[in-house]
Amino acid sequence: MSKDHLGERLSALVDGELGPVEHESALIHLAKCESCRFEADMMRRLKRRLTGLREPEPDLDFMGRLTSLSRDPGPGGRGPSEPPPGGAGFGFRPPLGSSRPLGGFPGGGAAAVETAAETGSARTGPARPERPARPVRRRGGDRFSHLLPDFPGGRYAVAGFAVATALLGTAFVAGGDAQDTPVVEPRLSDYAVEHAVTSRQIPVMDSRPTEVRPVGTETPPGYGSTETTR
């Protein structure tokens, strides 16, 4: 037996599927065979881990306690020293992170909820695995929830609107005039003369500069306007 390792029977041993005789012989083999003993130990550890795993969930307890800090006082009023509704305020609760490990407590779930129901609101111990139902959490914690659209995907619509607004604002700022762009007044009179010279035409009448006219000549109507933007 010590020569022949347990092989597939090792898995059955860990799962408790061996009969009494086989179980006894397997244990005897484990006492003698270090290799199978190590393998059996590893399989047990692996099985414990797999059993303890469940779907990861965000720690909503943390969010609930944060939002309870800014909760408005109810109609009955509540002094600043009074704990918030629910039995305990920030500081009265267990330290953050000690309430529930990621993945929940082993053996938690429905049984834990039942336990919480039995203990009522006197939850002062570190083990508080229950999670409030979704409607209760929204009423108590999210003070801005009434601003969100009451239809599926409303949060996404708000986020999209915010992104679009930011984009438009950025584009509006970027589309403005550069601060270093100088204000200029094009000298149309000089342009007209330059164009007339290169095209052998007579300059446009009202764009001819008076300052270059010969002395003694009268200024015809329309002359002298250096800007012809009429």
């Binding site: 762009t181 100088p182 204000v183 200029v184 007044e185 094009p186 330059e194 290169t198 095209s199 933007t229």
Partner: peptide, 19 residues
């Protein structure tokens, strides 16, 4: 035909807005 294009860096004064 001949076309003259005058280019200068800058922007027009706001007083041109009326025209």
């Amino acid at each position: 035909s001949q076309v003259s294009v005058f280019i200068q860096r800058g922007k027009l004064d706001t007083k041109h807005a009326a025209s």
